[in-house]
Design a protein around this nucleic acid. Structure first.
Length: 281
DNA sequence: AAGGAGGGCAACCGCACTTTT
DNA sequence: CAAAAGTGCGGTTGCCCTCCT
């Protein structure tokens, strides 16, 4: 039996659980936020049902957990998804599909919910506009061979005015990813299951490298294993200290790409559309 | 200026898995 | 070992805001 209480311009739903206790739903208030934040700061994460009971919050444990993870946690990053993050999302999704929490482990400060929303609102919208299924080969190929290289181009363009950073036409690009020498991509521990405490950086110096004297550090093997069709991101650091991102991309000429979109005109309009929407560029 | 449409995002739901008792 | 409780995760919903007409 639910009752709806309207206040402050938003709907707060109150229902009764088995014990007759009122359960609040809907948007969290500042007061609730501070109650939850204070409790977790003192007592740590976990035991979310207890949190709900001990704080006097009339919320379910699940609701408390979600609020903390997606909003109140101190390391939650706000603001737009960066180009590098977009590229990573595309890459990891091509590998793992809708494993949002797993993908989120590689994007520090981003929540699975945020990434999921990003995918649904941006990427799926593009698929819809192109009148193809987001899981179709056509769409995945467009991501892999058109959008991702284009993203990398943009990252490179934004990151460096330096010509030495370009490795010619060999599909090696650079960006300003904040990586240290001998960098390895590590999942963000703060998103790991049953984690506690502060987030660790998701990028750490590599413990070892197969090529001892090489300054290159490829994305960890866990990330690169089984990547589709020889398409992978390689992160390395050149002598200037700038990070190079190489994408092993098969070369597709315009004619091939035209095949996906039915000819030059269609492709042109496709790019026009992309430029208008700017969702990843 | 007003109303409608669509997008973005926070929050909820249900199920599956893990841990505890 | 089984049941209950707790937790995690992906899918979905609905509200609010912005843009367009």
């Amino acid at each position: 039996m639910d009752a709806e209480v309207r206040g402050c311009g938003s709907a707060i739903q109150v229902s009764s659980d088995q014990e007759g206790m009122d359960i609040r739903r809907g948007p969290w208030t500042d007061e609730e936020d501070s109650m939850l934040k204070n409790y977790v700061t003192i007592n740590g994460e976990g035991r979310w049902n207890s949190v709900a009971r001990c704080t006097g919050l009339k919320r379910t444990g699940k609701s408390c957990r979600l609020r903390w993870l997606n909003y109140l946690r101190p390391d939650v990053k706000r603001g737009n998804i960066t180009l590098q993050e977009q590229l990573l999302i595309l890459e990891l999704h091509s590998r793992w599909g809708n494993r949002w929490s797993k993908i989120a482990q590689y994007l520090p400060g981003r929540t699975d919910n945020e990434i999921k929303n990003y995918w649904r609102t941006r990427v799926q919208k593009q698929a819809k506009q192109l009148k193809c299924d987001v899981n179709s080969k056509q769409f995945r190929d467009a991501m892999r061979y058109v959008w991702m290289p284009r993203l990398i181009e943009r990252i490179r363009a934004m990151a460096t005015p330096k010509s030495q950073c370009l490795d010619g036409p060999t599909n090696t690009y650079c960006s300003d990813l904040p990586l240290n020498n001998q960098t390895q991509l590590i999942p963000n521990q703060s998103h790991a299951p049953m984690s506690s405490g502060l987030a660790e950086p998701y990028l750490r110096p590599a413990i070892s490298s197969t090529s001892s004297d090489s300054s290159e550090a490829r994305v960890s093997s866990d990330l690169t294993n089984d990547l589709p069709c020889g398409n992978y991101i390689e992160i390395s650091q050149n002598e200037s200290g700038l990070i190079q991102q190489g994408l092993d991309i098969q070369t597709y000429d315009d004619q091939h790409i035209d095949g996906w979109f039915g000819g030059g005109d269609t492709l042109d309009s496709f790019w026009d559309y992309q430029d208008q929407n700017m969702w990843f560029l």
